[in-house]
Simulated assay, not measured.
Amino acid sequence: MTMLGDEELLAEMRSALDGVQATADRVRRRVNQAKTTVEDKKKLLSVTVGGHGELTQITFNGDAYRQLAPAELADLIVATARTAREGAQRKVMAGTAELTGDLFRLGDTARTAASMEQLIEGIVGLASAGDDRQRGRSAT
């Protein structure tokens, strides 16, 4: 890897930071728009939560739920909401993999760099490779 001039290196780092920010913005939008709906095993009700796990809707399917004792219905709602939140959390974590995908390689870069310049060049290289993948090109 050739040594970059200070201005070129700074421009590369800004570009990499812009890429990370754009990815973070996409993940944030996805989380804000996401919703997860889960139906209980007996299909008495379904619970919908938003991307942050907040309860947004409870739907009762028919009126069979009326035969449950109040405490049993409450437990069913809580358990179904918990399952929906866990599903939402899995979706969010899968979405953030895009943002954090190169963190392991970044750790390798930090461990093997012999100087600060090599570390910065390695970071820029990872960011450039991520940019290439995002644009559908293969990184060289």
Rank of each mutant, 00 (worst) to 15 (best):
V78P: 10
G19T: 09
V20P: 08
L119C: 03
R30L: 01
R137C: 10
T2A: 11
A64S: 01
A129G: 07
L106Q: 01
A127P: 06
D63H: 11
K42C: 03
A74Y: 15
L55I: 00
T56V: 00
F60L: 08
G19S: 14
G125C: 02
G122P: 04
V78W: 14
E12D: 12
A127T: 08
Q67T: 12
T112L: 09
A139S: 12
L68C: 01
V49I: 00
T83G: 08
T100R: 07
M13F: 14
S15C: 14
A139I: 00
Y65K: 02
T100I: 06
R29V: 13
V20G: 15
D40Q: 05
T36V: 08
G51L: 02
I123P: 01
G95V: 04
Q89D: 03
L106R: 06
N32H: 04
V124N: 10
T109R: 01
L76H: 10
E7F: 09
G62W: 03
A11I: 13
G122K: 03
T36G: 00
D102M: 07
P70E: 08
G53P: 07
A114C: 11
Q21W: 13
D108M: 11
M3F: 14
A81M: 05
A88C: 03
V78F: 11
N61I: 15
T59R: 12
L73Q: 11
R133L: 14
S115I: 05
T140K: 10
G125W: 03
G136S: 01
H52I: 06
E8Y: 09
E86W: 07
A24K: 04
I58A: 05
T2K: 14
A16W: 08
G136W: 12
L103S: 15
M116E: 15
G5Q: 02
Q118T: 04
L103G: 04
R82Q: 14
G101S: 03
A88R: 02
A139W: 08
L45R: 10
T96N: 06
T100V: 14
N61S: 13
E117H: 09
E98H: 08
E72K: 15
V38Q: 12
V47P: 02
A97L: 08
A24R: 06
D6Q: 11
A22F: 06
A114V: 06
I58W: 10
R85E: 03
